[in-house]
Design a protein around this nucleic acid. Structure first.
Lengths: 167, 167
DNA sequence: CTACCACATGATAATGATTACTATCTAATC
DNA sequence: GATTAGATAGTAATCATTATCATGTGGTAG
């Protein structure tokens, strides 16, 4: 199975492009273009280290000493919803435990957080022939599938229907 | 790519086996076998829903009304360290954001939590021919590789050397 | 260019999961 | 049964995140 690090050059050039188009996309999407949002997306796109909210806060504060930490949290979430950023740590707000210690993976409902175990035999092979990747010594692999469970899909349809003929 | 839910029967039978051997493995590993630990592993192995600590607490309290929530948290962590359980939500204690919204995956250092983007072209195909799995409507896939980064590996070696000739 | 208003922000309080602390207890060993 | 290292109960502390709400401002229609 193919597997490689994404180069810093590639990340940086794609980040530059996204930053240039950011204001336009916001206005098209009905998001106000504020100095805070610009500063936060700029800081995020300049970061290759997948920062936490408090790190973005520290970086942005150099230019905007008045910005609030709450705004950073809020804005990062807003950016994710708008598709301008993503969370590395998806779908989990507290620890979930599993009594099954056999190698396996998970499918998670994005709405109700229901989790089921799945098996993906090919992923075991991913690590077998490869113990190193770009300086990292490989230890394990976890695949998480984002999905909508049956109950939530039904509820979603009902809800949309109830909301009326808007679309 | 092969992909399927793990059946309840299979989970339950493997859970029964692990429970039967639990006390022995604890004693071999130098872990005291306490009524609380037995109750918690029993509750976890009986659960197919990947419960949170507070849910285990609620379940265990029916038999052990005196148990403390702190004990449940501590014991679940202990069980994970001992390889008797695992956390579905690995390696992240707070949200990490990524400015790269192109489809990609991550490799995470288990010690320092350094994160790098990786590309796994085959995983894109995982979802293409398949929109449903056991009632779940598929939306996306995230692979997280657990690894040790170069710096942490070096520090680890140094540390072990410093700790002396024990092994 | 100005005024308006829905939305955004700052400051801070509240929340909620997890961890720390410490006195007490107990499983394991002899 | 006595000893003791490790475990637990109860509670306080921590820390990331979210809620609240008064104030400020980007977008836009006039």
């Amino acid at each position: 199975m193919e597997l490689e690090l994404i180069s810093e050059q590639r990340r940086a050039s794609s980040a530059a492009r996204r930053l240039a188009e950011f204001a336009d996309r916001c206005r098209k999407g009905g998001l106000a273009v504020t100095p805070q949002r610009l500063a936060i997306i700029r800081a995020l796109l300049a970061s290759a280290d997948h920062p936490r909210a408090d790190l973005i806060y520290a970086r942005v504060r150099k230019q905007h000493p008045h910005i609030s930490l709450a705004t950073v949290h809020r804005t990062l979430e807003t950016l994710c919803e708008a598709g301008e950023a993503r969370k590395v740590t998806m779908l989990h707000d507290s620890a979930r435990y599993d009594g099954n210690v056999e190698p396996h993976h998970h499918i998670v409902c994005v709405r109700c957080r229901r989790i089921r175990d799945i098996e993906v035999p090919e992923l075991g092979q991913l690590l077998e022939g490869r113990s190193e990747l770009g300086g990292f010594t490989m230890l394990g692999a976890s695949l998480e599938l984002q999905a909508l469970c049956e109950q939530c899909r039904r509820k979603g349809l009902k809800k949309r229907a109830a909301e009326g003929a808007a679309d």
